[in-house]
Simulated assay, not measured.
Amino acid sequence: MAGSERQETESALDRLDAVLARLEKAVVRPNAAESELRILRQAHEAMRAKVGHALADLDGLLEEFGEHG
C-alpha cells in the first residue's frame, strides 16, 4: 500500500473511531432534555390524578347538597 493510501486509510479509520465514540456517548449518557421531559410527564400524570380525585369529591359534595338542599 502506498504512503498516501495508507494515510487516507488511517485518516478514515480515525474519523470512524471519532464517530463511534460520539455514538457511544449518546447511547450511554441520556439526553438531559429527555430526562426532564420524562419527569415532567410523570408530574403531569400525578397532577391529573389529583385533580380528577378532587373533582370527583366536589361532584359528590354537590350531589349531597342537592339532596339535602
Rank of each mutant, 00 (worst) to 15 (best):
M1F: 12
S4L: 10
V28R: 09
M47I: 11
P30I: 06
Q7I: 14
E24C: 04
D14A: 11
R6L: 10
D14Q: 08
D57A: 13
K50H: 05
D57G: 04
H68S: 15
G66W: 07
K25H: 09
G66D: 12
D17G: 03
D57T: 10
D57R: 12
A21T: 12
L23Y: 04
E24R: 09
R41Y: 05
S11V: 02
D59F: 00
M1Y: 08
A32R: 14
L55C: 02
H44V: 04
E24N: 07
H53V: 03
A12S: 06
V28N: 06
L20T: 06
I39E: 14
S4W: 05
Q7K: 13
S11R: 13
K25Y: 09
R41C: 04
T9R: 14
A21N: 04
E36L: 12
L13S: 01
K25A: 12
G3C: 07
R6W: 03
R15S: 08
E36M: 11
L62W: 03
E67F: 07
R48P: 00
E36Q: 13
G3V: 06
G69S: 14
G3P: 07
E8A: 11
G52M: 02
I39M: 10
A18D: 04
A33S: 05
L62D: 02
A46F: 02
L16I: 03
H68E: 13
G3I: 08
H44G: 06
P30L: 07
E8D: 11
L40A: 14
H68C: 12
A26P: 06
E10L: 15
G66M: 08
S4F: 05
L58V: 13
G3S: 10
A56M: 06
T9M: 11
L58R: 05
L23E: 14
H44T: 10
L16K: 00
V51Y: 01
E45L: 14
V28I: 15
A12T: 09
P30H: 07
V51I: 14
M47F: 11
A49E: 15
A2I: 10
G69C: 11
A56K: 13
A46G: 06
R6S: 04
A18E: 02
M47D: 07
R41G: 08
K25Q: 12
L20C: 03
K50I: 02
G66T: 09
E67K: 15
E8G: 01
A26C: 10
P30R: 09
E24D: 15
A18H: 00
D14C: 04
L40H: 11
F65N: 13
M1H: 11
E63S: 11
L13D: 00
V28F: 06
V28C: 05
V27I: 13
E5H: 15
D14S: 14
A32N: 08
A46V: 09
L55V: 02
Q42I: 12
N31I: 04
A21G: 01
E36N: 09
A43V: 02
M1V: 14
E5R: 14
L62P: 00
R41A: 07
A2Y: 07
A46D: 11
L20G: 00
R22M: 06
R41M: 13
Q7V: 13
A21D: 09
L55W: 01
R15W: 02
R41E: 15
L23K: 06
E64G: 07
D59N: 03
I39W: 05
T9A: 14
I39N: 07
L13A: 03
E36F: 03
L55G: 00
G52T: 11
R38Y: 01
A21M: 05
